[in-house]
Design a protein around this nucleic acid. Structure first.
Lengths: 134, 134
DNA sequence: TGACGATCGATGCAAATGCATCTATATAGA
DNA sequence: TCTATATAGATGCATTTGCATCGATCGTCA
């Protein structure tokens, strides 16, 4: 818990210092970028990111207000919508990764060997619910 | 990050379900309990818990309002105060630990062997800033 | 078809957080 | 001693989170 908080805090600080949005935006942009043109439904984002439903709802509103994502009505479900990342959103994600990735490299990559990283990843994977695949 | 968020969320849920305060209270009560009769200065709590200064200030106000801690003036520094856990605070911490500890056992202890726990602890310790002792 | 419970997403309100700044006291230096 | 700077802790204000609930649509079953 202590380590995760520390890493999180440092990564957030690095983003802030670069005038970039908070990490939560990255998580969403990342998922949407991986999803590609088809986009994702908000409820799929809540599943993948571990943000609460109301949190995703508001996060998306902010992202849309900034032009980083767009919401499209979905054909076969009148309740829902599909969210797709825009070019600007992709660009923002790229800039965030430059900073976020550097933080990870500095705080984690440079402190553990590749074997140790693999070991850590395997151990943490066992704590996931449901257990990580592989 | 994903694992830590998941663990945190589950532990918070368990506390809430038992009608107990959030985890942040536990962190502070724990530090104060370890500090004993002498208590701690608020700024020492900010160092040990990784909460921001203003956060500790308000957290202590809530804890005091609930009678879990008491603030005493400190003799040789007119700016400061010493915070000490009360009996009620100790009792609350005990009750929280019953729930929190069970969560840890369930979510972590039961999923990894003792050797694996040691390995995980050692790896994470290397990520601490400053690096964990030992 | 019509009624009913479930699901999707949004939102009003209260509480917590982040940020900047404030007051008060302490410490250092001219 | 007097002034300037640093430190301890609190707080006003804006933003974000958490909780409960809402409106709307979907799916199911009589």
């Amino acid at each position: 818990m202590r380590v995760s908080r520390q890493l999180l805090e440092r990564a957030e600080d690095a983003l802030k210092d670069s005038g970039l949005p908070p990490l939560a935006w990255y998580d969403v942009l990342h998922e949407l970028a991986e999803a590609g043109e088809g986009g994702l439904r908000p409820f799929q984002l809540t599943e993948r990111t571990l943000f609460a439903q109301y949190n995703i709802s508001r996060l998306l509103a902010r992202l849309e207000a900034d032009g980083l994502v767009e919401k499209l009505p979905v054909a076969d479900d009148g309740r829902g919508q599909t969210v797709r990342v825009t070019d600007k959103g992709r660009e923002t994600r790229r800039r965030m990764w430059a900073v976020y990735g550097r933080s990870i490299a500095e705080l984690v990559g440079s402190r553990l060997s590749n074997d140790e990283l693999d070991a850590l990843s395997a151990l943490l994977g066992r704590l996931r619910v449901p257990p990580a695949p592989e």
